[in-house]
Design a protein around this nucleic acid. Structure first.
Lengths: 187, 187
DNA sequence: TTAATATACGGAGGCAGCCTCCGATTGGCT
DNA sequence: AGCCAATCGGAGGCTGCCTCCGTATATTAA
């Protein structure tokens, strides 16, 4: 039972303004967006930003946790999908939509998955476990090569998400993911 | 005929020390390594660094051009290889070795290939053209799916190069590239 | 309503890195 | 030796990171 004392009214106001502006800034300038700028845009001192979010990761994590939780939930739903491989593929596309939200986020998440001390690590952990179930099911069904690991799959998704924006149009990530699933050899 | 006045002795000395230290710094800290630090380590003022290399890209380009030229040359050699697809694969692995030299380089190169104003763009151009020949040959031989473009292939290589270090061991890039060529579906 | 106090605010300040500009220095030539 | 173009070096202006602490204010109790 975590006792949560309600925030003071001004604190809550600032907290929310900061999140809004951070969302805008990250979307516009990528995960390296200036935090001073976020504070300015939110009409708040830089000290206030750092009190609410001690690190950039803390800010990002707050913005993303709901999405990651949603992805974990979605993985559980897809476990009942009749087509194991397609379910996995669909799930990865969903994750790609999230890691594609901010430029630089794919890198951050890929790093986080290897670093237990990262705040994002905790946030992604449940999600990754849920993904493993999807992977194992697809392998058990003989639809996914047995020698590939969840780690590798997630990394491939992150790579596609990283590379997607370098392709013209805005379906780059989907196209790359499709290529990865199909393989490059001529049929 | 570009008239090349020989550099003054001190200039040449500094130029070379800067390249040496830049190589070390980039290898150690990635492409975002501090240029002030490079100058310090080279025992040279920051102004001197910027005179010789007006931008970070100029410095990187000088360090990498020989490698890119070598890759172009290698592509031409591989055109006579009896196995078109394997030749292409081998060539991509070689490129991966180069883009894996410094952390962040894969991103830089992928960006450069879309930006004609980049110094690296010029430097990669010949290499990319040479790669296209390899691609077309593999497709003509029916060994590579016909709907994939050179751009997409290079991007997949860059993505693998970007992601490689996130896998344990130091064969991450190779492993990912192999997966991409084979495809993820169970055989 | 007012006073007391815990809570929260804000930005100055110290540090580092980017890049430019220009007075000081020096290599190379006569 | 002496000149001058080539080169050097780093101060200075800017931005961003993050911390610290004096000031302000929301809330609670009287």
């Amino acid at each position: 039972m975590t006792e949560v004392k309600p925030m003071r009214a001004d604190a809550r106001r600032n907290y929310e303004r900061l999140l809004e502006e951070a969302q805008r800034a990250f979307a516009e300038h990528g995960v390296e967006a200036s935090l001073e700028d976020v504070a300015r845009r939110a009409g708040v001192g830089i000290g206030t930003l750092y009190r609410h979010f001690p690190t950039r990761d803390a800010l990002l994590e707050t913005l993303l946790r709901a999405r990651f939780d949603g992805q974990a939930e979605r993985a559980r739903e897809l476990l009942t999908d009749p087509a194991p491989l397609e379910a996995l593929q669909a799930w990865l596309l969903g994750l790609g939509d999230t890691t594609g939200t901010f430029r630089g986020l794919a890198e951050l998440t890929a790093d986080a998955l290897n670093d237990e001390t990262s705040r994002l690590y905790a946030s992604c952990h449940a999600m990754r476990d849920a993904a493993s179930q999807l992977v194992e099911r697809a392998q058990a069904a003989g639809e996914l090569r047995a020698d590939v690991t969840t780690h590798e799959l997630l990394l491939l998704l992150h790579a596609a998400s990283w590379a997607g924006p370098h392709l013209p149009g805005d379906a780059g990530m989907q196209r790359l993911l499709a290529l990865v699933f199909e393989g490059l050899r001529a049929s």
